[in-house]
Design a protein around this nucleic acid. Structure first.
Lengths: 205, 205
DNA sequence: GTCTATAGGTGGATAGAC
DNA sequence: GTCTATCCACCTATAGAC
């Protein structure tokens, strides 16, 4: 049995899907759980605190996916593993993905999210930068500024995923399996372009 | 002097920025224009019609940007020109870009947007597919399914732009000029990967 | 084309009983 | 920890005067 605190967060997450943060109302959360509207206030001081808790859970969950991907033996394996974790997070927690990476900061409604979240995102980004730097150091990627290459890779993954999550690839990919295949297919030209092209090197990962 | 109809749309666009479609209220639009709340109803039947009109204007505007980009002499010039138009639309009409490409369909609030909008998006997509196909036919891009390559390119552009518009690249790029430079820099590895690599061909566009 | 008056709905939050 | 009762703010939309 899950405790009410977590069930409230779960319900709020699903309501977020309907229309963003503004669709999460205390009354709807309560109704969904067969509680009175005011019962929620025993678990969260107010709506802002509820949304912040939800946002924090989203980021914590993402961090967990990313860190659990560590373990590959070679830099290229670790790089690919990070991409897999990113994709898995997006597909298994699409609502959290939308909160973390697709919500315009102005849509949060409230001022600023806690500093801890910014730090967590920074650590995640530097995790990716480290994966890129490793590959550069081993000569697997063309030399360059790791941060900028990392953003390019991140943007590419994010672009494919966010078009899918907003339903704009529905004509192209029907099932989740089809989409996973397309994700890696779309990644190929970029990976080719990142590798040094010393006369036709075509070592696929 | 702009007529009230257009000023209402303009105001609604700016309110959208604050918190999505739900932040656009008839009262706030009216207040912004120093009108009574009910005056809006002389120009739009109700809120849904206002939002649809706004959405349609967003798509029309995008189409205009895209079509005005036609004119380059070579397939590669036309391809690059399309990418420039896409970027220009995103930077000059960021709120419209968010509506067209970043809003989860479920956040629209209302059932379905008019069929005309879907058709317009389809035409825009096939415009890009044609640019890709041209380049493939001339041997500038590796042979493949033009639709899938087009999506890969689209996703890449969209990824860079949407991360920027959500404020996630603020540490990397400060000014609009810096971002434009980064947009093309991030595009380079992908372009490299799209070109046939017959022993070190490095013809940049 | 714009106004005021108004009806009816939804949502955030508190107080106090159980 | 959950309830009911309650208040207040804000929203959509209509009716009818000017």
């Amino acid at each position: 049995m899950i405790d009410t605190h977590d069930r409230i967060l779960e319900t709020a997450k699903n309501l977020y899907h309907e229309g963003g943060f503004q669709s999460v109302t205390m009354r709807k959360v309560a109704a969904e759980l067969d509680l009175s509207a005011t019962a929620i206030y025993r678990h969260f001081r107010n709506k802002e605190h509820l949304l912040i808790a939800l946002f924090e859970d989203a980021h914590r969950t993402f961090t967990r996916y990313l860190w659990e991907s560590l373990g590959g033996g070679t830099p290229l394996e670790r790089f690919r593993s990070a991409g897999e974790a990113y994709l898995r997070f997006a597909l298994e927690e699409p609502l959290y993905y939308q909160m973390v990476f697709m919500a315009p900061s102005s849509h949060l409604g409230y001022e600023e999210m806690p500093e801890t979240i910014c730090e967590e995102l920074n650590r995640s980004f530097h995790f990716l930068v480290d994966r890129v730097r490793e590959c550069m150091n081993e000569g697997l990627f063309t030399e360059g500024v790791p941060e900028r290459t990392a953003v390019a890779v991140w943007a590419h993954s994010h672009g494919v995923i966010s078009l899918y999550l907003t339903g704009q690839l529905n004509d192209l990919v029907g099932s989740r399996e089809e989409f996973e295949a397309f994700y890696w297919e779309a990644m190929q030209p970029l990976m080719q372009g990142l590798q040094p092209h010393n006369g036709g090197g075509r070592d696929r990962s």
